[in-house]
């Protein structure tokens, strides 16, 4: 009885809900690399659940149209329609941001904090949880991933269209790169 009612009630949901199922199915293909709900457990793979919708949409489109370099993602998004990308961005933006705070040595954290307060705080907030509209959250993001990303911003061989972030990254002393990444990676809030 309940079973039938449930089915009926669910069937009664709108076409929009049915479309949302398809987005669930599509979003699940991301879990193998980014985790359920976009919460990654792999040190080099970013968590993506809870990132701002605009940011998500923007970078996936940049990858798709070859305006931005990537190692793997550019190939993956080329098979997706713009509508699918928009739906994925909306879907992952609705998930909760779950930081994965990673412990690091105190001196490294102190060094990172001072680099961040000098050069990064304006746009990311002191812990990375209070970003500008066009920036992602990075508190408790995986440090290994962020180091690789900073390398992309710093290395001239990657097309990274955000000029200001690129300049900030290039202005960093190379010893500050792992320190800043570890520092942001250690923040839970």
């Amino acid at each position: 009885m309940t079973k039938n009612l449930l089915a009926l009630a669910l069937l009664g949901l709108s076409a929009a809900a049915a479309a949302r199922d398809d987005i669930e199915v599509l979003a699940r293909t991301c879990n193998g690399c980014h985790g359920v709900g976009g919460v990654s457990v792999g040190l080099s793979m970013p968590s993506i659940g809870g990132l701002p919708q605009k940011y998500l949409k923007n970078i996936m489109k940049q990858w798709k149209y070859d305006e931005r370099s990537a190692i793997t993602m550019n190939r993956i998004v080329k098979g997706l329609s713009d509508d699918e990308i928009d739906a994925l961005a909306a879907y992952f933006a609705k998930q909760r941001w779950v930081p994965s705070p990673q412990p690091a040595a105190a001196d490294l954290l102190a060094k990172g904090r001072s680099a961040v307060s000098e050069n990064c705080e304006d746009c990311h907030g002191i812990t990375g949880s209070d970003p500008d509209v066009d920036a992602p959250r990075i508190n408790g993001q995986w440090a290994k991933y962020m180091e690789l990303e900073l390398l992309k911003y710093r290395d001239g061989k990657f097309k990274m269209p955000h000029r200001k972030m690129k300049k900030s990254a290039q202005d960093m002393k190379s010893a500050d790169v792992p320190a800043a990444a570890r520092y942001f990676g250690a923040q839970d809030k």
Binding site: C33, H34, S40, V41, G42, S44, M45, I71
Partner: peptide, 10 residues
């Protein structure tokens, strides 16, 4: 590097 992160998630 991504290979390692991929396997942990998978």
């Amino acid at each position: 590097e991504y290979a390692d992160g991929w396997l942990r998630n998978l």
